[in-house]
């Protein structure tokens, strides 16, 4: 799984003896030209994230956290600085290679779910495999497995409009998982969900993190961040704080204390 393209590998910086970090950024800067004014979305961000970590990124809107996520997700390129993904310098890759990385190594979960309407849960989950030349049988099998992982095996043939918000987000998670990525990037995944459903989604994330999946989560809800292992706070395009969460909340425990008002 962790295939490293040796040609584009640059000498990795050993940070804490745990080997090559999964994500490593150095002095990342991003400047937009908005009409006359220059907007400095990122002003020198350096951070390492290792495999198996669960990071919550906090910050007010405009703090640069979304720009940071877009760069991590290979949807955007930094103005300067380096981004190494598994030791590979991503800024040197072609658009086609970036598309492949997004397909194979990264899973996206969005605030607004971003499912294709009038397309069933199963077909939505299969979507990434359409772009990785997976044959029909494998597609179907793996999509069903991914849906089972998020507890929606029995909703495979439902359309997004027939599913609750929590269920839609779980389909989106299944879609993000289906190509077995190295990182799950979640951009305010609970922003559109009620508190119980939010915790349910976090329960899934914690479960996936236990199996070794690295998760980077953007949120502005402090109690959601408490389910992560590490909390990074952005402010004005820089990292303000980078702390280990002392005792992460266990979503499965929290759920027991919450009233069960289903949908």
């Amino acid at each position: 799984m962790a295939t490293v393209n040796s040609v584009t590998t640059t000498n990795p910086v050993e940070t804490d003896g745990r080997g090559v970090p999964l994500v490593e950024v150095h002095d990342l800067r991003k400047t937009y030209q908005l009409g006359e004014t220059e907007v400095h979305a990122l002003r020198g961000v350096s951070v390492s994230i290792h495999a198996g970590d669960f990071v919550a990124i906090m910050g007010a809107s405009g703090s640069g956290k979304s720009t940071f996520m877009n760069i991590l997700g290979c949807l955007d390129k930094p103005t300067s600085g380096r981004y190494l993904l598994e030791g590979v310098d991503v800024s040197r890759l072609t658009k086609k290679e970036l598309a492949r990385i997004r397909n194979q190594k990264i899973g996206f979960v969005f605030q607004g779910f971003n499912l294709l309407g009038r397309t069933t849960a199963l077909e939505n989950t299969e979507l990434p495999m359409l772009y990785s030349k997976t044959n029909k049988n494998d597609r179907d099998r793996r999509a069903r497995e991914a849906l089972a992982q998020v507890g929606l095996a029995d909703r495979a043939d439902h359309f997004p409009s027939q599913l609750s918000g929590g269920q839609q987000q779980r389909v989106a998670i299944a879609r993000a998982l289906v190509n077995q990525p190295r990182i799950l990037l979640a951009d305010e995944p609970t922003g559109n969900l009620d508190s119980r459903t939010s915790v349910e989604v976090m329960e899934i994330f914690q479960r996936l993190n236990l199996t070794g999946l690295t998760i980077i989560l953007v949120t502005h809800e402090p109690d959601i961040a408490q389910f992560a292992k590490r909390e990074i706070v952005f402010r004005d395009g820089q990292i303000r704080r980078d702390d280990v969460v002392k005792v992460p909340h266990m979503a499965s425990e929290v759920l027991k204390t919450m009233p069960t008002i289903r949908d």
Binding site: K95, K96, A99, F108, N114, Y131
Partner: peptide, 16 residues
């Protein structure tokens, strides 16, 4: 547009 964004995010190439 949104659908195209989704497809690009999950790994569609421009050619796709």
């Amino acid at each position: 547009t949104r659908e195209i964004g989704i497809r690009l995010a999950i790994g569609a190439t421009e050619a796709d």
